[in-house]
Amino acid sequence: MIYIGLAGWGDHHLGESGRGKLTTYTGHFPIVELDSSFYAIQPERNMRKWNEETPEGFKFVVKAYQGMTGHLRGGQPFANDGQMFKDFVSSIQPLLETGKLLAVLFQYPPWFECSKENVENLREAKERMESISTKGNGKEISLALEFRHQSWFEGDMRERTLSFMKQEGWIHSICDEPQAGMGSVPIVLESTHTDAVIVRFHGRNVSGWTQKGRDNWREVRYLYRYSTEELMEWKERLELLQKQVKDVFVIFNNNSGGDAAGNAKQLMAMLGIDYEGLAPRQLDLF
């Protein structure tokens, strides 16, 4: 099955029904990417609230906290890395307990290049997550991996990286993103897990992608609307991926101009998808 959703639920124009933005969102899509967990480990009460606001069968992709993926600049707000991982795993327990946690997404930065040291960093991160979850309620936490440095897929490293991900049990997060040199990765259309693969649409705004450091870079980085032709290409790719894996999860992250929801609905129509089990909705703007 192909499941389509968006990154976040607060910035999309989906119509308001007086029930709260997340509840409104769940009337349109069966999956969402939780980004706030990247900027700060969320209190468990937030996760419990979001769990209660979503229907049975709804899924969350939760982004790993930035300190867990090498993005954090400045001081470490935790006593040590072990405590940081422990607090993160504790925070997501409500979603894990109800089966609504699809995966924790480890998205590494553009400077995280392919090296022996970083391969060991990946192993260590996965071992920490597995060790902590085993000490808890014993429920397995699925982990997804996304690179932002081209060296992981250059030449013969492509097959070696994919083989490593398969051996280690990582879900592949495939990217559609601007091709802007070493700080971006190509579309690598291969699943590394039998149960799931994630596809994230970041847009193809090359100039916005490379403007980091400017005051408005967050506003323009994901400013892009996919054309009908581009989505048709992805329809074919997703159908190919479906033959490799049980479920394909698609996240539209081209949010800067408000294009994510429209593109997601367009792709759903192309695929002939009409999800069952969504929350009731009073108004459909699409």
Rank of each mutant, 00 (worst) to 15 (best):
N254Q: 02
D87H: 08
G67A: 11
S191P: 06
G203C: 04
W209A: 00
N253D: 10
K86A: 11
I141C: 11
G136C: 10
G181K: 11
E130N: 13
S256V: 01
N255G: 03
K139V: 13
M84A: 09
A144I: 05
H12K: 04
F147P: 00
A269S: 15
M165W: 08
H13S: 15
E117S: 12
E230P: 06
E233A: 10
W111I: 03
P77Y: 10
R158V: 06
L240G: 11
Q76K: 12
H149S: 05
Y224T: 01
F286G: 01
T210V: 07
P178A: 11
S227E: 06
T210F: 02
D81F: 10
G262F: 00
F249S: 02
G272N: 10
N253Y: 01
E168G: 10
L95R: 03
Q179L: 15
M232N: 14
M182C: 06
N205D: 08
S163R: 13
E177V: 03
R148S: 03
K49C: 02
L231Y: 05
T192E: 09
Y3H: 14
Y108F: 15
V250E: 00
V185R: 04
Q66M: 14
E233K: 11
S131W: 05
I174W: 10
V250G: 00
V119M: 14
R218W: 09
N263A: 03
A7Y: 00
R123M: 12
S256D: 07
S17L: 04
Q167S: 15
M68I: 03
V188R: 08
E233H: 12
K235Q: 15
D259H: 13
G8E: 05
E120K: 13
M47S: 12
L240K: 13
N137H: 12
E190I: 03
G272R: 11
V32E: 02
H12T: 03
T210I: 07
I41E: 05
M268G: 01
L223G: 06
Y224G: 00
K49V: 01
E154L: 15
C175N: 11
L223Q: 15
L95M: 09
Y108Q: 04
E113T: 05
A40T: 14
M157T: 14
D274N: 15
Y65W: 15
L238H: 05
D274F: 04
E190A: 12
L34E: 02
L162H: 15
H71Y: 12
M232L: 14
E124N: 14
I171M: 15
T98K: 08
I92H: 08
E53P: 02
F29R: 00
A279Q: 13
N255Q: 06
G138H: 13
R225P: 03
L143H: 07
N255W: 01
T24E: 14
W234D: 00
D195H: 11
D195F: 07
L241G: 05
E177T: 06
T192G: 08
